[in-house]
């Protein structure tokens, strides 16, 4: 046992780490083992150590492109969420509008939206603004569908309560309807975060001249496999960061909200 009684013993730490990360570590070990055993040419699959090397010695290339992708993904996500929320509120305000818009939203959110990227790229033109537009459109549908549902999932009894208290439509909206939608809104944020990063990268991959997706395509066509895998690593880090912060934000809000 450790002499400091408050901290957990190192053995416990190891146990927790193994129980949580055996899967991830296992996959990485399998990758390294596979490369070593089969002895594949390093042009086909680079050794992890070389990938790390490229990351460490060329931080500028990665940082500039990752910064752009992260910015486009985050800005697109926020704008898409804002737009989806606004349309959901408009739909909430009218039975006819919601009857028309909600089924369309449901259809679009169950379509493989990412497949729309080539169409959008052609429509909006090959441009950085198009990448942003694509992320906005992809984040829009979950935000709309979930917020529209959230605006209608009021706590039990609260609707009657507001009527008896003589609440105006506006008070009801501000104090009851809008706060009720917050947990659903957080779900939409969590669900949209990985696709936002993915679609920004895909758009860059298909038509961009900068950003992680472009870097990936460039290095793949030049057979710079270390760079390609390095891009994968950075993309994964960004995406995992976005996803885990969305999960953390959702947890934080739910502690207050539910």
């Amino acid at each position: 046992m450790s002499p400091v009684s408050q901290t957990r013993s190192p053995l416990d730490w190891v146990k927790t780490a193994i129980s949580r990360y055996w899967g991830v570590v296992g996959v990485l070990i399998a990758w390294q083992a596979w490369v070593t055993i089969t002895g594949v040419n390093s042009i086909v699959i680079p050794h992890p150590i070389n990938v790390v090397g490229d990351l460490v010695f060329n931080p500028g290339v990665y940082l500039a492109n990752a910064g752009q992708t992260l910015f486009l993904a985050a800005a697109g996500l926020i704008l898409g969420m804002a737009l989806g929320t606004m349309v959901a509120i408009v739909a909430w305000s009218s039975r006819i509008l919601s009857g028309i818009l909600v089924p369309l939203g449901l259809i679009f959110s169950s379509v493989p939206v990412v497949a729309l990227i080539p169409v959008l790229a052609r429509l909006l033109g090959y441009d950085v603004k198009t990448v942003l537009g694509i992320v906005i459109i992809i984040s829009f549908f979950p935000a709309f569908v979930f917020t529209a549902a959230g605006l209608k999932s009021l706590p039990p009894g609260s609707s009657d309560l507001f009527k008896v208290f003589g609440a105006s439509r506006w008070t009801r909206f501000v104090h009851l309807v809008l706060p009720s939608a917050v947990p659903n809104w957080m779900i939409a944020l969590r669900l949209s975060a990985p696709p936002a990063v993915l679609s920004a990268m895909l758009a860059e991959f298909l038509m961009g001249k900068s950003g992680l997706g472009f870097l990936f395509r460039q290095s793949a066509t030049e057979f710079a496999t270390e760079r390609a895998f390095g891009t994968s690593v950075i993309a994964t880090v960004i995406s995992v960061l976005c996803f885990t912060s969305a999960v953390a934000a959702e947890k934080f809000i739910n502690e207050k909200w539910k």
Binding site: G23, V24, G26, V197, L202, F216, V233, A235, T236, T244
Partner: peptide, 19 residues
């Protein structure tokens, strides 16, 4: 460990796994 692996796999953008 399985939960963690699944969510990491989920968060990896597909484009990064392509190579």
């Amino acid at each position: 460990g399985m939960d963690r692996l699944a969510s990491v796999i989920h968060a990896i953008p597909a484009i990064a796994l392509a190579p």
